[in-house]
Amino acid sequence: MDFILPILNSLPGAAAQGLIWGIVAIGVHMTYRVLDIADLSIDGSIATGGAVCVMLIRAGANPWVAMLCAFLAGAAAGLITGLLHTKCGIPAILAGILTQLALYSVNLRILAAKSNQAISVDRYGLVVSQRYVHNVDLSNPLPLLVIIVAILIAVLYWFLGTERGCSLRATGANRNMAKAQGINTNSNIVLGLVISNGMVAFAGALLSQYQGSADVNMGRGAIVIGLAALTIGEVFFNKIFRNYALRLMGIVFGAVIYYIVLQIVLQFGLNTNDLKLFTAVVVAIFLMIPYLKGKWPKRAGKEARSA
C-alpha cells in the first residue's frame, strides 16, 4: 500500500497541470471540434507563449502583461496558419505543420538562442508556481487556475453564442451552408485559429511560470495531449452534461483525469521516456471508442435507453 501516499501526494500537482492543459484542450476543441480543422501549429505556439512570457518577466515586465503578450504572440501564430490555409490554399494540417516548424526557430530567437530559460519564483512575482502547490494558503496556484479556467470558459461560451460566434460554428458545421447564408467562412477560420492559438500560448505562459522555465521543446506533442484531454472529457462527460459551458468544463476535467492517470502510471514505474508513447496510445484508444461504438450492434436495453 506504499504507493497510495505518493499518488495522493501528487494529486494537487496533477490537478494544476490538468487545469493548465485544460486550457490547451479548449483551444484544441475550438479548432478540432468547432471549426473541424486539425491545427498542428499549437505545438509551436504553446512554446512561443512560454518563451514570450518568461523573457518579458525576466526583462522586468508585470507577469499579467507578459501573459497578455504571450496570448497575442500565439494569436499571431494562429493568424499565419489561418492565412496560409485560407489565402494561400495550403491544406490546414500542412499550414499548421509549417507554422509549427517555423515557430521552433522563432522561439529559439525569443529565448535568446538558448533552448531553456529559467525563471525563479524567488526573484520574480510569478502568477502560479509549482513550489506552492501543496500549500494550504493563498500562494497555492490551484484557486487562481480554477478562476482563470472558469473565466475562459465563460468568455468562450458567451462568444460562441453571439452572432459572430454562431457564424463561426456554422462555418465548422457546414462550409457550404455558411457561405450560402452570407458568412465569410475564410475570415471565420482565421478568427478561430487566432483565438485557439492565443489561448494555447496563454496556457504556455502559465505552464512556463508553473514549472519555472520556458523550454523550446515544451510544446512537443501538445496537440496530442490536448486531444487526449478533449476526448477523455467528451467520452466521460458529454453524456452527463448537455449544457455547452459544462461540456467545456468536462474537457478541463478530461485534462485533469489525464494527468492523474499519468501520475499513477508513473508511480507504478512507467519510464518517463515512454510518456509520449503512453499519451499516443491513450489518445488512439479514446479516439477509437466513438468509432467502434458505432460499428458494434447496440444491445436492446441500450437502444431503449437512447431512444
Partner: peptide, 29 residues
C-alpha cells in the same frame, strides 16, 4: 445535408439565415 448546419438547433439555423447580408457582431445570436 447541404443547406443546414447539422450540429446546430433549428432556431439557430433560422437565426443564421435571418442575418444573411448583415454584419455579424457580438450581439446575442
Amino acid at each position: 445535408m447541404m443547406g443546414t448546419a447539422p450540429t446546430m438547433m433549428i432556431e439557430e439555423n433560422l437565426a443564421l439565415a435571418a442575418r444573411r447580408g448583415k454584419f455579424r457582431g457580438l450581439k446575442w445570436g
